[in-house]
Computed example of a mutant assay.
Amino acid sequence: MTTLLAAAGCVESSNPPPPAARGSETATPVVSHLPPSAGSAAIRLVDEDLADLHLLVSNQSFEDDRVTVTVSIDGTRLVDQPFDVIAQHNWILFPIKLAPGSHELTATSQTGAEMHQRFTMPEKGRRYAAVDYWRDRGQDNRHLSWYFQSHPIVFS
Rank of each mutant, 00 (worst) to 15 (best):
E114T: 13
Y133T: 00
R142P: 05
E114F: 11
P35C: 11
W134N: 05
P100L: 10
T108E: 15
G101Q: 13
R135F: 04
A130I: 00
S145V: 05
A38T: 09
I73E: 05
Q110K: 12
I86K: 05
R77L: 12
P35L: 15
P29D: 02
T26E: 14
N141H: 12
S14R: 11
D65Y: 12
T76I: 13
C10P: 04
G138C: 08
E63S: 08
D74N: 13
R77A: 13
R126M: 11
G23L: 03
W134I: 01
I43L: 10
A20V: 06
F148R: 02
Q110H: 14
D74Y: 05
D140I: 10
H143A: 04
P152F: 12
P35A: 15
P29E: 00
S13M: 13
D52P: 02
D47K: 10
S37V: 09
L50Q: 12
F83C: 03
S109I: 02
A41V: 08
S24M: 13
A27G: 10
S14W: 11
T120R: 09
G23V: 09
P152I: 08
V85T: 07
I92Y: 05
V85F: 01
V67Y: 03
T70S: 15
I96V: 15
P19E: 07
Y147E: 15
T120M: 04
E48R: 14
